[in-house]
Simulated assay, not measured.
Amino acid sequence: MKEQILSNARLVLDEQVVNGSLVLRDGRIADIAEGPSRLPGAEDCGGDYLMPGLIELHTDNMEKYFQPRPKVAWPQRSAAMAHDAQMAASGITTVFDALSIGDIDDSGIRIEILQQMCDALTGLASQGLARIDHRLHLRCELCHPDTLTRFLALADHPKLGLVSLMDHAPGQRQFTDIAHYRTYYKGKYRLSDEGIEAFIVQRQADSARYSDSHRQRIAEESRVRGLSLASHDDATEAHIEESHAHGCRLAEFPTTLEAARAARRKGLAVIMGAPNIIRGGSHSGNVAARELMRAGLLDVLSSDYYPASLLDAVFAIARSEGGYDLPRAVGCATHTPAEAVGLHDRGRLAAGLRGDLLRVAEVDGQPLLRRVWSAGNVVH
């Protein structure tokens, strides 16, 4: 048996932090005890925290490695392994890699490289190259004409575990304020005044034509397959009612306090961006994650576009006066997301669960990641 004994650590449990020791054996947590271990070979953690590995449900980080610059496609194995390494170095031991189906930018290559990214995930796992556990999250841009066709082509992928329903058309949800939309996309795609106006008209037309029917069908196909379903950018109580009716278990990035409260009433876990916590607000001008935290409505944290933000945000909200102590803050990035997608073998420090662990020191209030274990193996 392969065994590691970690002693003199502050163990972050569900509801408390205790000084103790932990035994890893054959890739799982074998035992947890209070107090230091007296067994030979025990590793002294020097009072550092031991906590579960982080679970990331929504990050488009892998797309950035496959397309590091506009029109540039990177070799798929190299891109996937570099992404995998960054996830491990950020303390993320389970990641649902969010890949876009459909794109609001017709000139982009997201659609072209979609199959490459799916193949790369499968290859990393089958060849034993992955440091951590990768799953697939399909982000379905409902207003794209080909979204349904592409979703059905990937709906039975063995790595698929999460589907989100998105509509980024201007004038609703994330971009209720068209002025914010105009500023954001004019800069992102370097459009002229005439170009951005034509862009807005086309996106609104596509949304009116495709979004409702695509939302209904993709939700149905996801339920049939037992896939976890998430809404995206809900702004109103009516949006939450619709999401709940479709069987959504997660409300990703609600844009208003009203929507977050409605999600809580309907039993949807509210997921917010860790960068929103670190930056102090939304880059789109929507509700701040800290406001939802102070209202007790923050359930899940996601690194979104910046992997290292997840661990930083956990400690940031634990230091704040929002009612989230360290165990509750850690839970937002471990057992709560695990439960939301039906993973019951990880996300806690408990005997019998996967040996996904982080050893973390705290230096001047900043978390310092010293070591990462994935299924009992040191991966960082």
Results as ranks from 00 to 15, higher is better:
R150G: 02
I111V: 13
V95G: 09
D97L: 05
I101E: 04
P145K: 13
Q116S: 15
Q174V: 07
H134T: 11
C143G: 12
E141M: 11
P145E: 15
L160V: 08
A120V: 09
C140N: 12
A120P: 05
H137E: 10
S107T: 13
E141W: 04
L160H: 02
R135I: 07
A120G: 06
I132V: 15
H168I: 10
L148N: 08
E141T: 10
I113R: 11
A125Y: 03
G123Q: 08
I111C: 00
S126K: 07
G102W: 02
P145C: 12
F96C: 14
G108E: 08
P145V: 12
I113N: 06
H134N: 09
E112S: 11
R173G: 05
G128K: 03
V95P: 08
S164V: 02
Q115F: 00
L129G: 00
I111F: 00
M166L: 13
G108T: 13
D133F: 03
G128F: 07
K159D: 05
A155F: 03
M166G: 06
T147Q: 08
R150D: 14
L114T: 08
Q116I: 00
D105T: 01
Q174F: 12
M166S: 05
E112N: 08
H168C: 12
A153H: 04
A153D: 14
L124Q: 03
Q172F: 00
L129W: 15
A169M: 09
R173F: 09
L160S: 04
I109L: 14
Q116Y: 10
D97C: 10
L136S: 01
G171A: 10
D167S: 10
C118Y: 01
D177Q: 04
I178E: 15
G108Y: 02
L160N: 04
T149C: 08
L121N: 03
Q172T: 09
H144E: 13
G161H: 04
G102H: 01
R150N: 13
F96R: 00
I104P: 07
A169C: 14
